[in-house]
C-alpha cells in the first residue's frame, strides 16, 4: 500500500506540471514584480536601477493619492452594499419564501456569473442619456420623475455612485446565497426554543442568528474587500475612468503607467501598493472579528 502511494515516478508525473506552471507563471512573476519596482523605464529600452525612487514617488504622486482615496470610498460603499443587502435578502428569503426557493436562488445569482465587461457595457446603455434615453432615464421619464433625468455616468457627481450601484447589483447575489446556505445550516433548535420563549423575529436575528453567522460575515467581508480593491473590468467598461479621472481606479492607473507609458518599475510599485492594501484591510477585518469573538 505504502509502496504504491509513495511511487516516486507517479508522484513526479502528477505534481510536476502543476508545480512548474504555478511557479513559472505565478510565483516567479510576483517576486519579479518586487524586483522591478526598484527600476525605472521599460526593460530593453531604458531600464535603469533607480533605488527607492519609485517608492518615494508613491508618496508624492497626487494622482495616485486621488485614485487610492476613490478606491477606499468605492470599497466602503460596495462592500457594505454587497454584504448587508445580501444578508438582508437571504434573511427575507429564508423567512418568507416557502415554495420556489430554488427559482429565487437561480434568478438572484444570474448577475454574478455574467462577464463584468458586458455588464459594464449594459449599464452604459441603462444610464445613457444620448442619443436616446437609456433604460433608467426612460423609466424616470414615464413615472414623472423628469427632474431626476441626468447623464448618470457623464456627470462628475453621479459617476462614482453609478459605478457602485452597478457593482453592488452584480455582486449581491453571491453574498445572498452564501448567507442563505449558512442560515439553512444553522441549528434549528436554538431558533425554535427562542421562538417558544417569545423572542421577536428581529431579536432572533440580532441575538442568535447574527452571532452564529459571524464567521460567514468575516469571510464575506474579506472576499468582497479584496474583490473591490482589485476592481478593474467594471470601471474600464462602464466609464473608462471618466469623466476626467472621477472613476479612475488604482488598477487602471497601474495598467496605464506600465503599458501605456512604459513605466514598468513604477507600475510594479503601484501593484505592490494594491497588494499591501489587500493584505492590510484583510487583516484589519480579521482583527475586528477576532476581538469581538
Amino acid at each position: 500500500m505504502n509502496r504504491v502511494l509513495s511511487n516516486k515516478k507517479a508522484l513526479a508525473l502528477f505534481t510536476l506540471p502543476a508545480i512548474l506552471l504555478f511557479t513559472v507563471f505565478a510565483v516567479v512573476p510576483i517576486i519579479w514584480s518586487l524586483f522591478y519596482s526598484f527600476f525605472s523605464g521599460m526593460p530593453g529600452v531604458n531600464f535603469e536601477f533607480c533605488g527607492l525612487e519609485n517608492f518615494i514617488n508613491l508618496f508624492t504622486d497626487s494622482e495616485l493619492h486621488a485614485s487610492l482615496m476613490l478606491n477606499v470610498k468605492y470599497v466602503a460603499v460596495v462592500v457594505i452594499g454587497q454584504v448587508f443587502i445580501g444578508f438582508a435578502l437571504a434573511m427575507l428569503i429564508n423567512y418568507a419564501v416557502k415554495r420556489g426557493k430554488n427559482f429565487v436562488r437561480v434568478c438572484m445569482f444570474i448577475p454574478v456569473v455574467l462577464p463584468s465587461v458586458a455588464v459594464g457595457q449594459l449599464f452604459q446603455k441603462i444610464y445613457a442619456i444620448a442619443p436616446q434615453y437609456g433604460l433608467l432615464n426612460a423609466l424616470l421619464d414615464i413615472v414623472g420623475l423628469k427632474f431626476l433625468i441626468t447623464a448618470w455616468i457623464g456627470d462628475v457627481s453621479t459617476a462614482v455612485g453609478a459605478l457602485c450601484a452597478m457593482d453592488i447589483w452584480k455582486g449581491v447575489g453571491l453574498y445572498c446565497l452564501i448567507f442563505y446556505s449558512a442560515i439553512i445550516d444553522l441549528p434549528g433548535d436554538v431558533v425554535e426554543s427562542a421562538k417558544i420563549d417569545g423572542a421577536s423575529s428581529f431579536r432572533i436575528i440580532r441575538s442568535i442568528q447574527m452571532p452564529l453567522l459571524k464567521p460567514i460575515f468575516r469571510m464575506a467581508f474579506i472576499f468582497s474587500i479584496t474583490g473591490c480593491i482589485k476592481v478593474y473590468d467594471s470601471a474600464v467598461s462602464l466609464t473608462k475612468g471618466g469623466p476626467g479621472t472621477t472613476t479612475y481606479m488604482p488598477t487602471m492607473y497601474m495598467f496605464d503607467e506600465a503599458f501605456t507609458y512604459g513605466n514598468f518599475g513604477y507600475g510594479s510599485a503601484i501593484a505592490l501598493i494594491i497588494l499591501v492594501e489587500c493584505v492590510l484591510l484583510t487583516s484589519i477585518v480579521g482583527m475586528i472579528f477576532k476581538e469581538r469573538g
Binding site: 508545480i19 504555478f22 516567479v28 512573476p29 510576483i30 519579479w32 526593460p43 479584496t226 495598467f255 494594491i274
Partner: peptide
C-alpha cells in the same frame, strides 16, 4: 508545503504578476 504553496494563489491580486508575465 505544496498545499500551502498553491493556496498562496488565492491571496495574490493578478495585477501584481501582470507586468512580469508580460515581460516573460
Amino acid at each position: 508545503f505544496f498545499n500551502k504553496y498553491f493556496m498562496m494563489g488565492l491571496m495574490i491580486p493578478i495585477q501584481v504578476a501582470l507586468i512580469p508575465i508580460f515581460q516573460i
